[in-house]
């Protein structure tokens, strides 16, 4: 069971209050009409899915209902940091990991 710190509520709450919404930092193409099928398909469906450090979007669904980001290790499940939308992660994968 995760114990997750919500940066908006400034409190630790149990996993069940939250909902994981997948990979973070996916920017919607500014001009969708100009995208090739490949670019649009990759925006919609292709994901990083690493074994190790991952940046994820979570929502405090049964709390303040606000979104935020988590950096988490998908192997050990350790939560490395929590940060707000618009901020950048301070913990990132080693280059060997992101080859």
């Amino acid at each position: 069971m995760f114990h997750i710190y919500c940066p908006h509520c400034a409190e630790y709450r149990e996993e069940e209050e939250f909902h994981a919404s997948g990979q973070a930092h996916i920017a919607r193409p500014l001009d969708p009409e100009a995208c090739s099928d490949k670019e649009w398909g990759e925006y919609l469906y292709f994901r990083k899915n690493p074994r190790g450090i991952h940046h994820e979007l979570w929502v405090h669904a049964a709390g303040c209902r606000k979104f935020f980001n988590i950096t988490r290790d998908t192997q050990t499940y350790e939560i490395k940091e929590v940060y707000k939308i618009g901020e950048q992660p301070s913990v990132v994968a080693q280059s060997g990991n992101s080859k």
Partner: peptide, 18 residues
């Protein structure tokens, strides 16, 4: 479940989540 990890080594992404 390990497919994305191998695909990445081959230089492409897959539309998968583990």
């Amino acid at each position: 479940g390990n497919s994305s990890v191998l695909a990445k080594k081959a230089g492409f992404e897959l539309p998968l989540e583990s």
